[in-house]
Amino acid sequence: MAVIEVKGLSKTFKVKLKDKGFKGSLKAMVKPKYKTVNAVRDISFTVDKGEIIAFIGPNGAGKSTTIKMMTSILFPDKGSIKILDFDPKKDRKKLSYEIGTVFGQKEQLWTHLTPYDNFKFFGAIYDIPEKAVEKKIDELKMLFELDEFINTPVRNLSLGQRIRCEIVASLIHNPKILFLDEPTIGLDPVVKENIRSLIKRMNKEYKTTIFLTSHDVGDIEKLCKRVIIINNGQIVLDDSMDNLKYHYLNKKIVEAKMKERVNLDDEDGITILKDKGYNLKIEVDTTKRSVADAIKLLNPDNIIDINISNIPLEDIISSIYQNKDQL
């Protein structure tokens, strides 16, 4: 069952232009010039209940604008959005009871208060009876392991602890969909991993649909089964994580240390990435050429050391950012 339906969504912004220098400033005051920026262009997608979906793209791709339209912060110019059968444009207040948002770069907790007082505050904001709030806090305290610091003022918490509390605060009103905007930004690898497993656990426990944006490939790889990539305001890829990987797993990276110099040129199915005489790095397209073939070209007797690996997901994604035609 689709809980998010986006159809033909577009949004343009008018950006003021200014010539350089003082003269330019004066001119802009008298006769301002504007440029139209197409932030989001005709995008459509649906998200099913309980899905964890990654919505990614380079800076300025239109991610934030799309999320803001979905959470009723911005109004779309064209197209329609349905979130749990609500139109964010018209049913802003009703929708706010059904969704939660966490912005990794934005604190929504009161820093002078303890997490516990903060959660009570959010409970009141969402009109939840006091007893129900306390029950929910207890439940989330266990799930997110907050026991140690639930009574410490937020300003004294570490970043990882704070993010955990931010997520809990956004879950107090039992949202059906959670929008997570870069939840692991600035965290160390151990804490990142911990947050990811907590998000996964929450998704399993409450069947919360999670709409995640992140620049961290680890987040996407470990959490999401489906990924939507947006660039220049358009969707360039909407596919399952498995398909995305499978497509690129056809390519292998072979790094070899040689006894003697090898003169190798680009051939069908083989691309030379680095050639330093005795050290070679080549990409093999296994749909055209087998890895064994490539090794034969190098001459196995000549090889001192060899390493065969998949293309890192990070590289896959950045190549999609740079050129969607490569797909």
Partner: peptide, 11 residues
Amino acid sequence: GNITYNINKPY
């Protein structure tokens, strides 16, 4: 832009 974070809250 902090004001935007208040828009989608029920108050």
